[in-house]
Design a protein around this nucleic acid. Sequence first.
DNA 1: ATGACAAAAATTGTATCCATTTCAGTGAAT
DNA 2: ATTCACTGAAATGGATACAATTTTTGTCAT
Lengths: 211, 211
Amino acid sequence: MLNLRPVKMMPVREQAASSLREAIITQKIKQGETLALEATARALGISVTPVREAFQILARDGLIELAQNRGAVVLGMSAKNIREHYQIRAALEAEACRIVCENRADLSEIEHCIGHLVSHDAENYGDLNQSFHYNIWLASGNSRLVNMLGELWNGLSMGLRTTKNEYAKKSRAEHENIYSMLKARDSEGASKAMRGHILRSMEDMLTRYDS
Amino acid sequence: MLNLRPVKMMPVREQAASSLREAIITQKIKQGETLALEATARALGISVTPVREAFQILARDGLIELAQNRGAVVLGMSAKNIREHYQIRAALEAEACRIVCENRADLSEIEHCIGHLVSHDAENYGDLNQSFHYNIWLASGNSRLVNMLGELWNGLSMGLRTTKNEYAKKSRAEHENIYSMLKARDSEGASKAMRGHILRSMEDMLTRYDS
DNA sequence: ATGACAAAAATTGTATCCATTTCAGTGAAT
DNA sequence: ATTCACTGAAATGGATACAATTTTTGTCAT
């Protein structure tokens, strides 16, 4: 089958949001800067209306703050920010595990991810890691939960791509542990394991950003 | 101190969102209807720009869905919707309780709410209930968590205002139980109690909307 | 009645314009 | 010299008009 680009594009506001998101996370736009509306629109080659909507998306993702009549201020990764982010993620992902166990949800996709995580080296560890988590969210069957966790991930976790090897090893063991708990349908154990995994990731992140 | 209305108004987009939110929750706008942009702007007496942003806010709150080129479709309270909402709230509010216990946070505001809940009758039970929950969120010190729970509350809980008396009684006992757990700094107990409270509220809600 | 095609309406994005708020810079007074 | 107030520039929030797609509607012929 021919593999053509879909005719219907992504809305411009989301393209703008993606572009800005990447620039913020890669620190091309620095923390504390304020994004001017018209300047941003010019830089992106679009008009101001979709930029304003993109700002709202980014604010929802926690990347910027929209202050009254003062524009969009880029938020940084403070320790407080990181703690807030991971506390919420820990609660939601633990809940996802609990639901997966209680519903006896299908684990084949998750098992698939575990297979890749074991066999592959840490080159594209970031993608495999995200895929593992994402498939647990999906298996919960709670689409709202999937959306919220996706937004949270957008907001911060790109920083995880800079993961070191030592972290990958620890993390891999934890992933396998979580999977075994899910397979055993042990909702308490699985949610606790996921919670612990994420909170430990938080500590990892904090040591890198406590400068 | 004089209690005057603040000079600076709420942004129009948020006023619009509030107005639409109320209309949706009170079913003045029915489930499945699509909100036309210009018609909505005319009805609200404002221009389309802030209405578009209001639509995004409502979409974030889970009250409408923005379909590609097809406008804003009002979502109803399906059983699936209610379950998704309460599962997430259960996870987040339980986490708030856990944090409050671990941080030995100040409970005076929460205690204050409990006092009111005990002494007052069910007339304005809805407000007191919200106040109790809200102050637990606040005490967690996680501002992001407060925002997310606030949005969730906006999305569904107005329906709770139609609470029956029998429910209020059950609920009151659960609130007191949660408070005593918080005072004992029993993080497991408090989070479990909150979880149970919210999931039972879910069942209550489901019996009313399973028609 | 069904299917194709044409017209109408709605959404999305563009382009300006106005009012109000914020911010910066100048200048005066203590 | 520092502080305070005023003035003017710039930016946001909102209004309005308009072009381009896409969706929907409605008609007409088979």
